[in-house]
Amino acid sequence: MALYSEKVMDHFRNPRNVGVIEDADGVGEVGNAKCGDIMKMYLKIDGDIISDVKFETFGCGSAIASSSMATELIKGRPVAEALELTNKAVAEALDGLPAYKMHCSVLAEEAIKSALDDYYSRKGTAPEEK
């Protein structure tokens, strides 16, 4: 059996939304090089819609695939939905991750939350309570 699902390998080999948004409305970076995983997310937000998202990742195959999948899940979606994104949703969309790689999906969730935090702090507001 292969280490990763075909979905993981697809997103690892052909990562979606790779790169940088120079005039991003929110940028988040999580992880550290000591542990071997760093994810950086760039968000462009129009109104309350995430109109564009890009990522850069230093890490293993599942870290790159998790970043890629997370960007796909929030691109074109309302900010409120992105705030609800869970690591489980990322892992499920990838047809699962090995147990010891689940932290990669956690990192992807955190990277997006961190970029949204940055967006709100730049705006000087907090996300609306539901």
Partner: peptide
């Protein structure tokens, strides 16, 4: 390296 934030 082309999409590594560490490298950037």
């Amino acid at each position: 390296r082309s999409f590594s934030p560490v490298w950037r």
